[in-house]
């Protein structure tokens, strides 16, 4: 299977079918990134689509020597998210509960799993944005520290420190809510 960088190269040369491979590889990671950072699934879907669209439109600017394609795509996603939150459309607590109730739990998910997910989501909301994003990229989008660092424009050391601080704080929050 071709790497994302090779696929990106082909797309830049006009082979739009190659974009299908990129889409397939990055759909879930990108969707999860938005899902854990935003209040509703609809918003996550919209931003995922928007992120792919921007990747496609600006794929000619991608330089494989500077970063992996995954980092580059997540950088675009991160910028989109920042813009979205800045426009006041990000996490809003009052909307969050209503949206969450409206979200139908996926089929086959047990009550316990649903409760875990809800508790984790509530705890993540209390983390600073930079810490939350590091955790989401690392654990839900399956990125390496180097890729997270590239996507967020930080050094690997800084990302590692952020991750440790985020985990400790998340543990404290979960414990304070009686989650062991």
């Amino acid at each position: 299977m071709s790497s994302l960088e090779e696929l990106a190269q082909r797309v830049a040369e006009g082979d739009l079918e190659a974009f299908g491979g990129i889409y397939e590889s990055l759909l879930d990671p990108l969707y999860r990134y938005f899902y854990w950072n935003l209040s509703s699934r609809e918003e996550a879907e919209d931003l995922t689509e928007e992120a792919f669209l921007r990747c496609l439109l600006h794929i000619g600017r991608f330089d494989a020597r500077k970063a992996s394609f995954r980092s580059w795509a997540f950088r675009i996603a991160h910028n989109l998210l920042v813009d979205h939150i800045r426009r006041g459309k990000g996490l809003r607590k009052e909307e969050l509960d209503a949206n969450r109730e409206a979200d139908e739990p996926p089929l086959g998910e047990t009550v316990e799993e649903e409760a875990e997910k809800r508790a984790l989501r509530q705890a993540l909301e209390e983390l600073p944005s930079s810490q939350r994003q590091v955790l989401v990229m690392k654990y839900f989008s399956g990125m390496s520290n180097a890729e997270v660092a590239r996507a967020l424009g930080k050094s690997e050391g800084a990302v590692n420190a952020l991750r440790h601080r985020a985990l400790r704080k998340l543990g404290t929050i979960l414990e304070s809510r009686g989650w062991r």
Binding site: L27, Y31, E45, K117, R168, E175
Partner: peptide, 21 residues
């Protein structure tokens, strides 16, 4: 506590992209 949180993060199943996408 950090280890617990990490465990939870790894254990929770993150949703897949919806069918529409």
């Amino acid at each position: 506590k950090a280890a617990l949180a990490e465990d939870l993060l790894r254990r929770v199943e993150s949703p897949k992209a919806p069918q529409r996408l």
